[in-house]
Structures are given as C-alpha cells and as structure tokens.
Design a protein around this nucleic acid. Sequence first.
DNA 1: TTGTACGCGTTATCAG
DNA 2: CTGATAACGCGTACAA
Lengths: 347, 347
Amino acid sequence: MAHRWQERERSGAPRLTDVAVLAGVSIATASRALSGGGVVSPGLTRRVLEAADELSYTVNPHARSLAGGLTSVLGLMVYEIDDPYFAEIAGGVIQVAGEHGWSVQVSHQDREAASDLAGVRMLRGQRVGALIIAGSGYRDPAKNATVNAELEAYAASGGRLVAIGHRDIGCDAVLPDNVGAARVAAEHLIALGHRRIGVISGPDTLTTVVDRGRGIDRAARAADVEEIVWAHAAFTRDGGRAATVRLLDSHPGLTAIIALNDTMATGALSVLRERGIPVPQAVSVTGIDDVQVAQDLAPALTTVRLPMASMGRQAARLALRPAGGEPTVREVGHELVVRASTAPPPA
Amino acid sequence: MAHRWQERERSGAPRLTDVAVLAGVSIATASRALSGGGVVSPGLTRRVLEAADELSYTVNPHARSLAGGLTSVLGLMVYEIDDPYFAEIAGGVIQVAGEHGWSVQVSHQDREAASDLAGVRMLRGQRVGALIIAGSGYRDPAKNATVNAELEAYAASGGRLVAIGHRDIGCDAVLPDNVGAARVAAEHLIALGHRRIGVISGPDTLTTVVDRGRGIDRAARAADVEEIVWAHAAFTRDGGRAATVRLLDSHPGLTAIIALNDTMATGALSVLRERGIPVPQAVSVTGIDDVQVAQDLAPALTTVRLPMASMGRQAARLALRPAGGEPTVREVGHELVVRASTAPPPA
DNA sequence: TTGTACGCGTTATCAG
DNA sequence: CTGATAACGCGTACAA
C-alpha cells in the first residue's frame, strides 16, 4: 500500500522511478526491463513488469524522445482527409500503426508546395519516427526540390520515410501504376466503340495527373481516336463539375468522359444528371480509384480500382520496418471495374 | 558565417542554445523572446527572432513538454476515419488546428468500450494538449464509466477535453440534436403519407442510435403510424444492407425505410437496387447526416443535414481555447434535405 | 530586463 | 547482469 500513497502524493503520472522503487531495482534496470531486449534477468523483469502494471505506468514519450531520438508517432501527409481517396489510405495506415502501438499524426495540405513544406516541417519538428507522404508530387522540379530536400534530410537523420505515389524521392514507396490504370480506363471506352472522348483532369502540375494523362494518350494513340479533348480543373468534385461544363459546351459531340479520379467523375455525373443527359446512353463516364461510394453513385461508376486501404497498410508496414539497405518499392495492381456508367456510344 | 559552421558541426537540429549564441543572449532570454509574452526588450527580441529565422529553428516540442506543460498536439478519437461522417469531422478539426499551429493525432476505434479506453490511454500517454472525442457514447453506464473516468482524469490534469455528440461527460461539447434530426426525417415520411415504415438502425448500445430511435418513436406516436419495425445491425454500409434484407423479407408491406445514418442508407439503396425495387416509387428511403456523397447516390438521398465539418471546426476551437469556468455546450442545428429518394407511398 | 542553474523522465554509457 | 550518472532541449524560479 505504500506505493499507492506515493502515487497519490505526486501530482502527475507515475514515472519510471516509481516503478523502479516499487520493484526494488534501479531505474536503469527498470528501463531495460521495459523496453530493452531481454538483457535483464527473468526474475527482475517480472517484478518490474508487475510494478509497472500495478501503477499503470506508461512511458513519457517526450522524455524518451529527448533522451533517445525519435518517437513512436507516424506522420501522415495527405490532401484533404475528407476526400475518400485519402480517407481510405489513412484508414489503412492508422490500422496498421495501431496494431504496432504507434499513433498517427495527420497533416493535410492545400496541394501547394509551400503548404507541403510547412507540413513536413511541422512533422519533423514533432520528431515523428516515420513519415508517410501520400498525395501527388509536383511536375515542376523546382517545387519538388525544396520539399524533397526536407524529406531527404529527414530520412538522412534516421527517420523512416515512405512515399505513396511518388517516384522521385529515393525512399521506400508504394506505387500505383497511374499510367496503366488510366490506360485501362481509356481502352475500355475505346473497346466499347467510343472515338470522341473528353478527359476531365486535375491541374497538370501534379505528377499523378500527368501520369494518368499519359496513360490515356497511349491508349488513344494506339487506337484511331478521332477526337480527344482535355479540360483541366481542381482535382475535386467541383473541379469535375467545372471541367464537365466546359467540355459539354465546347464539344457537344463527345460520347464519353474519362475523369482522372472518382471524385471528379462524381462531379461529372452530377452535371450530366442536371442537364438531363442520360448516362451511359448518351455519354459514358469512367473514373479512376474506385472509392467506396463509386458503386453507389447514379449510375454506378465504371472505374479502375486502386487498393487504397491496402496501399495505406503496406506503406505503414514499410514505415514501421527498421531502416535497412536499399529502398523497397511495392508496385500495386489495378483492376477495371465495369459498372453501369459505360456503354457503347449512341448509334 | 561562424554560426553556419557550428550548425554543420552538430548533427541534429538547431537548439535554443544555438539561437541564443547567435543572438548574443542567454537561453533564458531567447526562450522568453520566442514564446514568452513580450517581457523582453524589443531590440533583443528582434535579434533573437532573426537568429531563429537564420537557423530555421523550431522548438523541440518534447523538450518543451518535459520542461513545462502539455504539447500542441490535439488528439482526435473517431470510429473509422474512412467513414465520411468522421472524415468530414476530422477535416474540420485538422483545418482549425492547423490554423493555430497545432497538429492532430488521430486514433480510431472499434466501437467497443475496450478499444475506446485504449485510444484514450494512448493519447493521454502522448500528453496531448487537447482531446476531442467524436463518435457515440455507450448506453450501458458501466461501459461509459471506465472510459469517462479516464477522460475526466485527463481533464482534471489540465487537458482540454471536448466531446462531439456526448452529453454524459461534464466537459465542453458540440451536440447535434439526434432526437430532433431523426424526428424530422420520420415526420417527412409521415407527411408524405407513409404509414408502414421500417427503421434500419445501428446497435442500440450506442447512444446516438438510441437518441435517433427516440426521435422516430416520437414522430410515430404523434401520428397514426400503422406499423413501425426495427432492424438492428452494424452502423455501416454492410450493416445497412443486412438490416434491409431482413426488413424486406419479413415485412414486404413496408413503403418507407429510415436509415439512422447515411452510410446505412447507402447500403439500403444498394439492396433495393439489386432487387429491382424502385426508389422512391415502391419504397422511400431517408438517411441522417448528409454526408457529401448523399447528393450523388442513386437516387440522390433525402436526408437530414448535420454540419459535420462545422462541428469539427467548432470542437477544435473549443479545444484550443484556454481552459476556463463552466463547460461550454454548442448545440448545432439540422435541416431536412429533400432529394429524390422519397415520395408518397404507392397507391 | 536579463542571466544562472535546476528539474522534467528517459535512454545510454560506463563501471562494478 | 546491474547500478550510478551524464546527457537530451527547454521552461522558469531565483538572483543579479
């Protein structure tokens, strides 16, 4: 009961010292018993563990970080956590992190390099032990340079760095095949007979957008597509709406629309519905990503599935792995999911 | 240039000492100039600030936390970050936190008390400076007790605690009117003429579910609803599917379905579509929440809007406010949003 | 107003 | 295998 009394006496949480006293060992031994790798005799280890349990002791991560180095916190950079694409990735990351006793700190950006930089700085400032950067890189090398320098400095200082969808950072990465995925979407439309296709695209400052665009180009070049027109806008539902409006007004002859992600496709569908243009009878629509709601849209969206949650899980596993040797790159597959938003063009 | 050299010499990030040396002051002065409240003479303050900028100094939050109080990290507890309801709340929280220079640590649970407890413990272990708990409480007082005790201990030890949708913790809270929102949904259906209504509901161990159910009860009692049947399942899309299947099979005469959230409604719509039951011609469907995709479903979902992002923002503002006096409670409004999934019952 | 010196809780180094 | 003890970077009484 003596320890209970001591516990009450101190205002804050129990410290390592309290555990050590209760177990009758030095704090060094207590520390090793708790976190070290079995260097302490079994008897003492058990006593320490019991004491820690008795006091419901939890390490102070700040003290640990000060003394040692980094923390068991994983930093996650995304654009807009409320975009299903990132939300699903985040879900995967948080799940795996939790399983390993790590917590996840989320930082979300404005799709601008300056904002990215601020996010990385903040996370570095927090001394996170691992950092996953999701979201696209920038096509402009100058923009990437500053952020990447910060990122590489982080990795150089011992932090575990994993990129999702970035090829240009020399670190572990989980890479969707953006070129291939977009190509599959385009080929599907072409195979259905479409020859006049609109592409609604995010800003081509983002590498994801450029890659997906390239995939479409390839598919179009391989076939004899008469007309392929592009409309760029924000990589969001509203952007999708704006781009679709422009496309429809300027090129009334289009029979199909490829959206470079499902979020934009959602916007496209909403415009089409408002205008009373039947999908897929008059115009077919495809997306890319297969976010969970794609199956529930009106009509259900034909799209190319990227396993976001799994990408998040894989990235987290890479991030939690001890640093070692060569950067690991995991390419993830994609799969055409044909639903109700595509059909042959009207006769 | 001397400082540059020193900077290189040390392996890690620049410390307060480095700034102090460069500015030619003591670390105490540097500390006060950077974070203190204008107690340092303007001249020195400027020199310190310039030095900090020159070195691109950032405080080590762990050292700060060790020395003094809590950290500029906000803990956020949600269920499934990839559920749009929570994703939208999280978006609001992260936005406001970012504006105030705080970062956000997300912990997501399994909708079980044990898991909740683990999450709170983890966040407390991290010494977060504020804690927002979203997601429902439990109806079972015993289940709440342990979690709430932990939560109150946190608040008692100086942490800022804000609840979203919990009434039973004596702390700042942002409260949607779950009873009223559900009632509005039911009244809408009743006004359309529906008298045989199915309710697909989450597990009634959650207070959110109970409250929403109560709202429906009230509406039903106030009118002469012939038949009202309940089906409970997980508070997810799949749960919505399961509950809908049971309802349809056991009570073929229903003309309307109220889902207790949009996610379940989405599941209901998918089952109805698979069975070729036209919505709203044969069966009307409503949800609650108005997640962003509700407008894009097939058909567009009639639902009751809760301002999730705004709730997140408000909660974050409360959490970032210095602790003081009485708990503040912000009730947030709701609004019926009539779309295409509801109509009068078939004749 | 400014500087000195101690303590925060842990890990890691170095003796025993 | 175990125990002292010195960092780690910062806030802050206390002294000047």
